Computed example of a mutant assay.
Amino acid sequence: MQRGTTDQLAAPPVDLLRGASLFLDFDGTLVEIADRPDAVQVDERLHRLIASLVAALDGRVALISGRPAGEVRSFLGGGAQPGFAIAGSHGMEFLWADGRRTAAERPASLEQVHAEMTALATQNPGVMVEDKPLGAALHFRQAPEAEEACRALATKLADVHGLQLQPGKMLFEVRTTGGDKGRAIATFLEKSEYSGTRPIFIGDDTTDEPGFAMAERLGGAGILVGTPRDTSATYLLAGVPETLDWLTQATEALA
């Protein structure tokens, strides 16, 4: 259920994580969005903060991203066992804390999707194609004038191949059907380590809205980062710096 615009939302209380499980988007939430997906900056503060959250919440922390799960892991520490769970590809793949990976099957049609996206990018300097395990995305942040061409091609490809069109911030993705960040949260809450806790989900994009709605449905809350819009979130943080500051304070409140 959409609550209304963000000017009606308050900042989350610092004790919100007591008795909770924490689910975090990555781009635009923990790190600033960069011109290229591979150009985001992860500093030592974020590494320490996530480690502190994992310890304070007894492991009840997971990242939920549109990025591939392995890519998120590489940004946040790498290694065979990341120490926390990651749902990648909008909840269509899971990298568990013990290193196990489960994922939907990659549709063969994504090869054709990628080829046609690459052809469009070649004709539009600044447009970039991101190949993912379960999708492909056209990024037009460096070529905003190509937005309509990207939208038209992505819409056509999703329709022709029976895939899902996933708009995002300055991108259009065509991906495997069936998952979203809300379903990812529900999957985590079925696991014993998360069972019986309130889900708190923090995200910034429209792709995070299913996560906000699911968190509320399961007795928790969503926290929207930044951009004013109609939302299912309960609380608001102004941007990445404010999110990191709040997470630090919320971690200290758990001590």
Score class of each variant (00 low, 15 high):
Q2K: 10
A11T: 14
R18Q: 15
L22P: 05
L22G: 07
F23H: 13
G28A: 08
T29N: 06
V31R: 08
A39I: 00
R45D: 11
L46F: 11
I50C: 09
A55S: 14
A56L: 03
D58V: 00
L63G: 11
G66T: 08
R67N: 03
P68I: 02
E71C: 01
R73D: 04
F75C: 08
G77E: 08
G79Y: 07
A80V: 13
A80Y: 04
G88W: 00
H90R: 06
H90P: 04
G91A: 03
F94N: 00
D98Q: 06
R100D: 15
P107E: 11
L110S: 02
E116N: 06
M117A: 01
G126Q: 04
A137D: 09
E145K: 04
E148K: 12
C150F: 06
C150V: 03
R151F: 15
L157D: 05
D159I: 02
D159Y: 02
Q164I: 03
L165T: 11
L171A: 11
F172D: 08
G178H: 04
D180Q: 02
A184H: 09
E193Q: 14
R198P: 01
I200L: 12
F201Q: 09
F201H: 10
G211Y: 09
R217T: 13
R217E: 14
G220Y: 05
I223R: 08
D230L: 14
L236E: 05
G239Y: 06
V240R: 09
T248M: 00
Q249I: 03
A255S: 13
